[in-house]
Computed example of a mutant assay.
Amino acid sequence: MKLTAEQIECINQTLIGKGIKYDDLKLEVLDHIASEIENEMETTNKDFPMVYKQVFENWNTEFKMTRALFSFNTYYPKLAKSKFGNQFKKELITSLVLSILLLTIFQIIENKQVKLQFLSVVKEVLFYTYCTTVAVALVIKLMNLKSKVTSTYKHLFDTRFAVMIVFLSVIFNANIPHDLTNQNLFVGTISCLFVFFVSVIYVGLKHLQFEQKLSISNS
C-alpha cells in the first residue's frame, strides 16, 4: 500500500523533530520507515496513524541523542553518530594499513642516508597532497556557499576544512628526525595526515555528488 505525499511529509517532519537534520541520512531513514509502514499496513490492514506510531516506537533507540565523537557538548541521534563513526573507522583502518606499508618499506632500507631520502620524498608527497587538498577544498567550499542542502558529508567536510590550518606547522617544517624512534613516529604521523587530507576531498566530493542526485530527483 503506497503512502500519500501528505503521509510521507508527516514522516519527514517527524524525523526533523527527532534531530535527523542531514538530508542524506533523512532520506535514507525516511525510505526505510516508509517501506516498513507500507508493508505493515498491507499485512495487517491497520490504518496509517496506528502503524506510524508503532514503527516509530520500534525506531526509538536509533533516535536517542548520543554525544558526538571527540566532543563534550555536541549530541547527535544515534543514527547520525553511527554514520560518522563508520566513516571514521574506514579512515582509521586505511591509516593503519598505509602506516604499516610505509613503515615496512622504511625498515627494509638499511642505509641511513637512503632512509633520510625516503623520509624527504614521503614528506614532499605530503606537502603537495596538502596543497592540492587546500585548493580543491576551497573550490568545494565556495560551491557550498550557494547550497542549501545539508548532509553528513558536508558536516564532516566543514569540520575538517577548519582543522586543516592546524597542520601548517607540520607541513612547512623542513626538519626531519635523525633518530630511528622519531623517524618511525614521523612515518606513522605522515600516513595519518595523508589519509586525513584525502578524506577532506572525499567527503567534499560526496556531498556535491549527493546534491546533484537530489537536484535530479527533484526536477
Score class of each variant (00 low, 15 high):
Val114Gln: 13
Leu102Phe: 13
Met65Gln: 13
Ile108Leu: 14
Lys83Met: 13
Ala68Arg: 00
Glu62Gln: 11
Thr94Glu: 13
Gln87Glu: 14
Thr104Glu: 07
Glu62Val: 04
Ser71Trp: 00
Thr61Leu: 11
Phe56Met: 08
Lys115Gly: 04
Leu119Met: 13
Asn73Ile: 02
Gln107Trp: 14
Asn60Pro: 00
Thr74Ile: 14
Leu103Ser: 10
Val114Gly: 05
Gln117Trp: 11
Thr104Asn: 09
Glu110Trp: 12
Phe84Lys: 06
Thr66Ile: 12
Phe118Arg: 07
Leu101Asn: 08
Glu110Ala: 14
Asn60Ser: 15
Asn58Gly: 09
Gly85Phe: 03
Phe88Asn: 06
Ile105Glu: 09
Tyr76Leu: 05
Phe56Leu: 13
Asn86Ser: 11
Lys78Val: 01
Ala68Lys: 03
Val114Leu: 15
Lys112Asn: 14
Trp59Asn: 02
Gly85Ala: 09
Asn58Met: 09
Leu92Thr: 07
Gln54Thr: 12
Leu98Tyr: 08
Asn58Trp: 04
Leu103Met: 11
Tyr75Pro: 00
Gly85Thr: 08
Gln117Ile: 12
Asn60Asp: 15
Met65Lys: 12
Val97Thr: 07
Leu98Asn: 09
Phe106Glu: 02
Thr104Lys: 10
Phe84Leu: 15
Asn58Ala: 10
Phe88Cys: 03
Val55Tyr: 02
Ser82His: 04
Lys90His: 11
Lys90Glu: 13
Asn111Trp: 05
Ala68Met: 02
Lys78Arg: 10
Glu110Lys: 15
Gln87Val: 04
